[in-house]
Design a protein around this nucleic acid. Structure first.
Lengths: 178, 178
DNA sequence: GAAATATGTCAATATGGCTGACGTAAATTT
DNA sequence: AAATTTACGTCAGCCATATTGACATATTTC
């Protein structure tokens, strides 16, 4: 006689009392892209954690990092353009930007031609912070590129550009060109 | 006579009253890796926004997405292993997981050999949700891969694997193998 | 039997997003 | 010149997701 008790069995969870859960994994047989989907998650997860130690020293978070980075990459950027890069609301940006201005990492200047604008510039302090934040990330990326041949490197860059929304690709190309 | 007023000048912000901000951008002359750093940001930004519409229909957030995804990819996963993938604390996972269990997307079963464990399985509902969430992402990745030749595709995958922390690469390789 | 392990839970807190409403100054349109 | 639009800021409240720290429980291991 078979075991009448409900003995749990990892290979056969349907044997238990209630409605059967699923034991078979979603695999790349069904979704061939799943490995790259997860690699993007894992790569990004580790990549963004690099600057955390530096940020903690300054009492800043990852939102501050993003603002400091793009202001340093685009001195004189308009608030609206920064919002478009980050894809957040002005209220969300507001707090973070105010802190960076108050602590002297970012400076605001009225636009010379359109004085409604408040153009954002890094201070010397802000530039130094941006350089400290990018350093571990650059090291990580450089180490990865070192292991690739030129064709593979081109593939990596090309792939990432194609993952970006088509509507934003030109803007991204311009931002990353300098 | 030169203009004695403080006329702002985008090309020369030092001309203004206070300490000079920096007008020169951080460029890839100084940091060659900066384009790839930003591409990782832009690609991830758009990539994770794909499932948002679906999530909203269910009243879930991105944290739920991550849990549903990895439980479907690894039915019977231990809580500790899921935490290791997500790199968050058990308290953070707790609420999200509880909601998914309460609403019938994930099921917990005691480990058959070690009954302290609560192994996580997707329900039929959970599997269906995972498939709906991955669909737009798979489409995006497939479209990108379509435009690459095999060597470039290998480069993209290889690059992402190398961006992962060395200590986690084996685990990531195992997770993405099936 | 004691210790270690796997997990859960309670509580407080921080961060970073959001919506909506309203205000102000400057530029543009009529 | 008045009206409208634009660029930006701010106030207020809310939500999602993360954190640390402490403690509880069941189970396994030594």
């Amino acid at each position: 006689m078979a075991d009448v008790n409900f003995v749990a069995d990892a290979s056969d969870p349907e044997a238990s009392s209630s409605a059967p859960p699923i034991a078979e994994p979603l695999t790349r047989e069904a979704i061939p892209e799943v490995a790259l989907i997860e690699l993007l998650f894992f790569a990004y997860r580790d990549f963004v954690s690099d600057p955390d130690a530096v940020l903690e020293d300054f009492g800043f978070g990852r939102a501050h990092h993003r603002v400091v980075h793009f202001v340093n990459r685009n001195p004189g950027i308009r608030v609206a353009d920064l919002l478009d890069i980050l894809k957040i609301t002005k209220q969300s940006l507001g707090r973070v930007l105010k802190e960076l201005v108050d602590t002297g990492f970012v400076e605001q200047r009225p636009g010379p031609v359109d004085r409604r604008q408040r153009l954002l510039y890094p201070t010397q302090k802000g530039r130094a912070l941006a350089e400290r934040l990018i350093e571990p990330q650059a090291r990580r990326i450089a180490a990865a590129l070192d292991a690739l041949d030129p064709k593979e490197r081109a593939g990596a860059e090309h792939f990432l550009r194609l993952v970006v929304d088509p509507a934003d690709r030109d803007a991204v190309a311009r931002l990353t060109a300098r």
